[in-house]
Design a protein around this nucleic acid. Structure first.
Lengths: 134, 134
DNA sequence: GTCCATAGTATCGAAAAGGATACCGTCGAT
DNA sequence: ATCGACGGTATCCTTTTCGATACTATGGAC
């Protein structure tokens, strides 16, 4: 039934970190959740915010999040179709987690020519020998 | 050079959540980091804590974490070899994030016959219709 | 009658991730 | 002379994941 990754099936049944990660993991769950923090979005609204995600993937990730109970999917019987995605109560409880992830990422990660690297604590723009993507 | 997943390469260059996730992602980074929060560990110590992880995988994940700058790898020129792994300063800065992940996981995730499911907010042990892994 | 938008599904193939297994080098103990 | 501990590599093969593409349904606008 296509779990996000092998994580759900073979995760450590005692590690709460992995437990959470198993739901956040999956190609674009992070951004999706991040956008959903601002409120509900229709499928194509979300899609337009995530231009590089294919429809297949977006649908897949959303369905996984729905199945997990993190987002809700509301189908309106209209045409053209309208489907709203929003965080559930449980999904909202993830907010602090998402925020923590976002805060750390904003503070410590820089995109060095298309690649994420961690910024050394005492540096801002200095070249970082040893990790500078030789 | 084998990024953890396609995330590093095609992540959203503007989403701090994905930025962080790109480093936490990878088969067992979560547990590894969790254990390392308690202090440095030798390779085999870590390995013994993670019986289901193959040596290859453990090495691989540790190396990725090392390359990212999250853990340090100290090789002692002794025999039999001794290699210590520990969180770097940056790695330690991840602590609140790991804790947030752990807290949420501990509170919201239960392992229902080998599978992680999110516990509904108002339930504790009640069967959850619809998501109960029919 | 045709086109368009929405929200999908279905199918295919490539790529990546992961698991199993076997092998390596060294020194001390036996 | 051999064995075992430690910390790996190397190789092979399977599973999973992802992306590209094409196809679908419906009803209103034109």
């Amino acid at each position: 039934m296509s779990r996000p990754r092998a994580k759900l099936t073979s995760s450590f049944p005692g590690c709460p970190v992995e437990s959470t990660l198993s739901f956040l993991d999956g190609k674009w769950k992070g951004v999706i959740l991040f956008h959903l923090l601002d409120g509900k979005l229709r499928f194509n609204e979300l899609r337009r915010k995530l231009p590089s995600v294919t429809q297949r993937m977006l649908t897949k990730q959303l369905r996984e999040l729905e199945e997990a109970g993190i987002v809700s999917r509301t189908v309106f019987p209209v045409v053209p179709p309208r489907v709203d995605y929003a965080l559930t109560t449980v999904g909202c409880s993830l907010k602090p987690v998402i925020m923590a992830l976002a805060a750390w990422g904003a503070r410590n990660v820089v995109c060095h020519n298309g690649r994420n690297v961690i910024r050394l604590a005492d540096e801002t723009e200095t070249a970082s020998p040893g990790r500078g993507a030789a």
